[in-house]
Each structure stands twice: as C-alpha cells, then as structure tokens.
C-alpha cells in the first residue's frame, strides 16, 4: 500500500476571537480558528459559526409570504419576535432599526432606545443592532442603541468609511463590538479595519461584513472575497483576521426566486419550497468560505443550517 501523507498547511495567522454578550447575558464567542472552515485535521476551531435571526423594529409587511406565515403574529412586536427566534434556535438576534430610515418613518434616538431595550429585556442572547444604512441616521440611532445596551457587549453596524468614527467611538465608550461593512472588496475591507483600529478599537472588538451576494446574484464574488480574506488572515495579516458576518437572509429573500410565485417557469418549483432552498444554499456555501455569523430570516433555515454546522463541527 502506498503511504499517504496528508498535506497540512502551517498557517501563521489566526482569526481574532470576539466575544458578544456576557455579564448576565449569554455569551457567544466567534472566531479563534487557525485553519480554513471545518478542516479539523489541520488546526483548531474553538468556536462554531453561529446563527442570528433578523428582527425588524416594524411589521415587515413587504416580506415574502413564506416568512410572514412562518412567524405569524410576533412580527408585530420586535420583543416577541426575538423571543420566538431564540426558541427556534437563534444564537443571536440581529435587530434592524428600519424605521429610522428617512423613508420609513425617520424615527430617532428615543425610539431606537426603546426598541433595543425591549428586545434586550425579552431575550438573554447577545444582540446585533443594525442601522437603516443611511450614514447620518446610523450614527444617530446606533449611538442611542449603544447607550441603551451599555455593558451588554452588543455588535453595532454598519460602520462604513463615511461614518466609522462616530460608531467606532461609541463602541469604544460603551464596550461594544463594531461591524465594518465594505462592498465585496478585499482591500477596502482591510482599509476599514485599519481605520477602526486607528481609532483605538482593539482587534477583538471588530467584525467585518464583506457584503453578501445571494445565490445567483453575485454569490461567487462574496464567496471568493471571503476566501481571499480568510487566506490572508491565516497567512498572518492581522487586519483581515476579523470574524466575518454575512446577511444571508436579507439578500436571499430580496430575490425574485424567494418572492415570486406567478409568472415564473415551472422548473423553478413551488415558491414555498424554492424560497427556503435559496436561503439555505446561500448559507451553506458561505459557511464554506469562512462565515462566522450568518444572519437568517426563516426559522426552518435556522434549524437546517444549524444541523449542518453541528455535523461539520464533528
């Protein structure tokens, strides 16, 4: 019999370990691995990838039918929604402050504080708070969220090049983790991590969102940028070694394949099944490119992806 010597890479780098929650709240730790996803034969993977469920601060009336059916009445109340999300297996809650958007009600700091507090009270898992993705409004409501969750080690996002200073500073002041989001580009991702570090944020207080492309809608770009970021990190680059967060649910459910039941080919299959597969398939492939936190929308996807992660962790 020929001798087979399995080639093992000697990586010099390691993903920063980032802690969320704690202090009375459940703690979730991500990162810490010194090898590629699930290659246990090569290195150590102390923390599995985790799943967050996206919760909006308003009734998501524009969401696709399968989502509305799955969640039912809790959609009217972010705290109840978050509670049910934890029951179906969410490790984290990703609260999106949608109503702060100028076109969605333009709510401000007070409302943000109220919603964040109500969700924090309802669940004991760590919280990710996302702004409406309008720079000035992000600053306003995330600073408010930061104060409301002081000491709870939230993750706040998104920092972009336009507004990283304010959000970074508030994270520093209140002991939170900042999420830096860049548009599917390795150098921009690194650059934002450097800027946030220059503010004084430590490496264990940063997450990066490389921007998710859904299955069929740019997935391959995200997949490869994540692989490149991860390889750079394992090669020893500390400024690409942040755990990665992927907004899979938001992107997958935005697509026609997850929303449309009429006027599409029969070969797409029925919407109720196809929509779920779209979210699952996007998630399963980005797990392979190095996602540490995956934000999902449908409870059934949470269960299925969790089962895959459990098996991949051995």
């Amino acid at each position: 019999m020929p001798t087979v010597e399995i080639p093992v890479e000697k990586w010099s780098g390691k993903i920063h370990e980032v802690r969320l929650g704690g202090q009375g709240r459940k703690e979730v730790v991500v990162g810490g691995e010194n090898t590629l996803p699930f290659l246990h034969f090569e290195g150590s993977i102390p923390n599995p990838p985790v799943l967050a469920v996206e919760v909006l601060d308003r009734d998501p009336r524009d969401w696709a039918e399968p989502l509305l059916q799955a969640w039912g009445d809790v959609l009217k109340n972010p705290a109840a929604w978050a509670k049910k999300a934890v029951e179906v297996g969410a490790n984290l809650i990703a609260l999106r402050l949608k109503t702060a958007h100028p076109e969605e009600g333009n709510t401000g700091a007070e409302e943000a504080k109220r919603v964040v507090s109500s969700v924090l009270e309802a669940v004991d898992v760590p919280l990710i708070v996302l702004g409406p993705e309008v720079a000035e409004k992000d600053n306003e409501v995330l600073v408010a969220a930061s104060e409301a969750g002081r000491g709870q080690r939230l993750a706040l996002g998104n920092c972009e090049e336009k507004n990283y200073r304010t959000i970074g500073a508030t994270c520093l002041a209140d002991g939170h983790v900042a999420i830096g989001k860049t548009p599917i580009e390795i150098n921009l991702a690194k650059q934002l991590n450097i800027l946030l570090s220059d503010l004084g944020m430590s490496q264990d207080s940063l997450l990066m969102d490389p921007t998710t492309g859904a299955l069929g809608y740019g997935l391959e770009y995200t997949y490869s940028v994540m692989e490149r970021l991860r390889l750079a990190a394992l090669g020893g680059d500390k400024m690409t070694s942040m755990p990665m967060i992927c907004t899979v649910g938001e992107e997958a459910w935005r697509q026609k394949e997850a929303k449309t039941s009429e006027g599409v080919p029969d070969t797409w299959g029925p919407l109720a099944e196809r929509a779920l597969r779209w979210e699952e398939m996007t998630a399963i492939s980005l797990l392979q490119s190095g996602a540490n936190i995956i934000v999902l929308r449908h409870p059934s996807t949470v269960e299925k992806v969790q089962s895959a992660i459990t098996r991949l962790m051995g």
Binding site: L215, G216, E220, G269, R274, M281, S285
Partner: peptide, 19 residues
C-alpha cells in the same frame, strides 16, 4: 425536484464561473 435542482444548478454556475 425542481425546487432543489434549480438552486443547485445556480450554485454550480456561480462557483464555476471564471473569476
């Protein structure tokens, strides 16, 4: 089934697209 085949074929197309 179409609802599993279509996503799988799409993923295959994505991954095997020449970057």
């Amino acid at each position: 089934s179409p609802s599993t085949m279509y996503p799988l074929l799409t993923l295959r197309l994505n991954i095997y697209t020449d970057p």
